[in-house]
Design a protein around this nucleic acid. Sequence first.
DNA 1: CCCACGACCTGTGGGC
DNA 2: TGCCCACAGGTCGTGG
Length: 287
Amino acid sequence: MPELPEVETIRRGLAPVLTGARLARVTARRPDLRFPLPHRFAERMTGVRIEALDRRAKYLLARLDQGETFVAHLGMSGRFEIADAGGSNGAGRFARAVAPDPRHAHVVFETEAGARVTFYDPRRFGYMALVPTAALGEHPWFRGLGPEPLGPGFDGELLECALAGRRAPIKTALLDQRLVAGLGNIYVCEALHRARLAPDRAAGSIPRRRLARLAQAIKSVLEEAIEAGGSTLRDYASAEGGLGYFQHSFAVYGRAGEPCLRRGCGGAIRRSVQSGRSTFACDRCQA
DNA sequence: CCCACGACCTGTGGGC
DNA sequence: TGCCCACAGGTCGTGG
């Protein structure tokens, strides 16, 4: 599920339950996800207090009171579910497209206040770590990570520097987390369509004026998706982190063969493959 | 260094 | 209905 907006939505959903909470019990129901869980993971997590929940790129960060930061990446299919002290969650009160399969409940966090947060991940591409907070920036997952697209200073000039000399297609370049952090396949396709840029253009050859428009498109699509995720949160009372309502707002992603939604364009969305991944774009209004 | 590709793992949806 | 293939929102290691 998760690109930057989904991880941010999950963070906002978990924050009320976990910020300031002390963990009474942590259960790892298997020894590994994509990578082995940290050494003595459950023991090291038990009794800690979570001082703050943050996000960097697609990573969820829980700053702990003992000097370490818990890091989680949700891979392709990871999700967190919140249950309150009574054990109920959104599923009992609201319709849900896909109920979590208990076979894939890999890690359970229980707070002293009686809340339970469960990590589900059928494909197990997700991963977790405990990293000394002071050295977080030097960790391989974070060293070399590009700028936050919603951070200060993200504009056409910054993109121009990041993309200088790149011959890779702009679509592929934007997926490179070293250049920009947090974008994934969906929002790259959506941002390129908003900016009217063709996905196969060489990244390093796009003039700054158009990169300014691209930077603005990236910001607006991410902000709108987070906003839509917020409405999902309100409805589900959970940190499910699915695509929420924003999936109904995709202009190109998953719309192969359908008409381009840009006013007056009249083109059709075409699916292609770049670096082994689906790209959706309108050949008529993206150039 | 840059880039493309296969691998990792399970589930789902479409076509026959 | 059942089977088989293609494909899925991410990242890493390899090899050209």
